[in-house]
């Protein structure tokens, strides 16, 4: 793929449909793997299940191999070095929150999702998850207003502080709340990744340089590089909030066009869960 081709063409309905398909596939995988989680299962085992499931459904490469975090690792407590993000031998227990995070590539089309849940009952998780809904609305609104990415990041931080939570996406590499995704290609071998796929690294590296020249960044954080209005394209947005030993996130694809923005898909588990909760209240 040449440098002239955008990572994802947001005006091409057929192409967006392909992205929607792979995102749905991810959520289907998350739903099915989450249903198999039982007390005692380790993060590594959960990741293995996700990997096998996705491979069996035609996935041929990764932005990154699947992650799973259990218990207070969902809030990245005590994380000091990057290796701590990798799947560990932590075991799931009753009442524990968990997060599944996967970013597969299928025939070049990629998605990146985050899926939060809890095994049994957890009041803190319920509250966090309820409050997480506000971020989906807020981010979309601000992107539509074409506020700069850095500004939006600060607004998200302000909301986190009002709610009394901790910003946990600041623990991600580059403190990102989001990053661009698209069609992944290149000459490097497919399917190699620990945890990041080599083709993804190649693409993101290329984009970093390319976007830098345009005064933008494919990574969305609160720093100077993100002081620009939303770049048209596909963005995986992943607000991650934490309170004490519980962390919750969602991650899904946001379509940004020249003058508008919308979530690629509203038919997602967390969207339905929030709607159901709102209807109950």
């Amino acid at each position: 793929m040449s440098n002239k081709v955008a990572l994802a063409r947001t005006d091409d309905r057929a192409e967006l449909e392909r992205f929607r398909e792979i995102q749905r596939l991810c959520y289907q995988c998350a739903d099915e793997v989450a249903a198999t989680l039982e007390p005692g299962v380790t993060e590594r085992e959960a990741c293995r299940r996700m990997r096998r499931w996705l491979r069996a459904h035609g996935v041929d490469d990764w932005l990154h191999t699947p992650f799973a975090w259990f218990g207070d690792r969902t809030a990245f407590r005590g994380f000091k070095v990057p290796t701590q993000f990798l799947p560990s031998a932590a075991r799931l227990a009753e009442g524990m929150p968990y997060i599944l995070d996967m970013a597969p590539v299928k025939k070049g089309y990629s998605a990146d999702i985050g899926y939060g849940g809890v095994l049994g009952e957890n009041r803190v998780w319920e509250q966090l998850d309820t409050d997480l809904a506000a971020y989906r609305t807020l981010i979309l609104e601000l992107v539509r207003e074409r506020r700069t990415f850095a500004d939006i990041y600060a607004e998200v931080d302000a909301l986190i502080e009002r709610q009394g939570y901790d910003n946990r996406h600041r623990k991600y590499p580059g403190r990102v709340i989001g990053h661009q995704v698209g069609i992944i290609g290149g000459m490097l071998p497919k399917g190699v990744g620990f945890p990041f796929g080599v083709r993804f690294l190649q693409t993101i590296g290329r984009e970093l340089v390319k976007e830098r020249l345009a005064g933008r960044s494919p990574l969305w954080n609160g720093a100077k590089q993100s002081q620009h209005p939303p770049t048209p394209g596909l963005w995986a947005v992943e607000p991650h909030i934490g309170f004490r030993g519980v962390g919750v996130k969602f991650e899904e694809l946001l379509v940004v066009t020249e003058d508008d923005a919308y979530w690629l898909d509203d038919d997602l588990p967390h969207v339905h869960r929030w709607a159901a909760r709102k209807a109950m209240a």
Binding site: R123, V124, Q127, R162, Q163, G164, F243, R244
Partner: peptide
Amino acid sequence: RTAELAGLL
């Protein structure tokens, strides 16, 4: 809000 969070803990 603080009271709500305190009630969780």
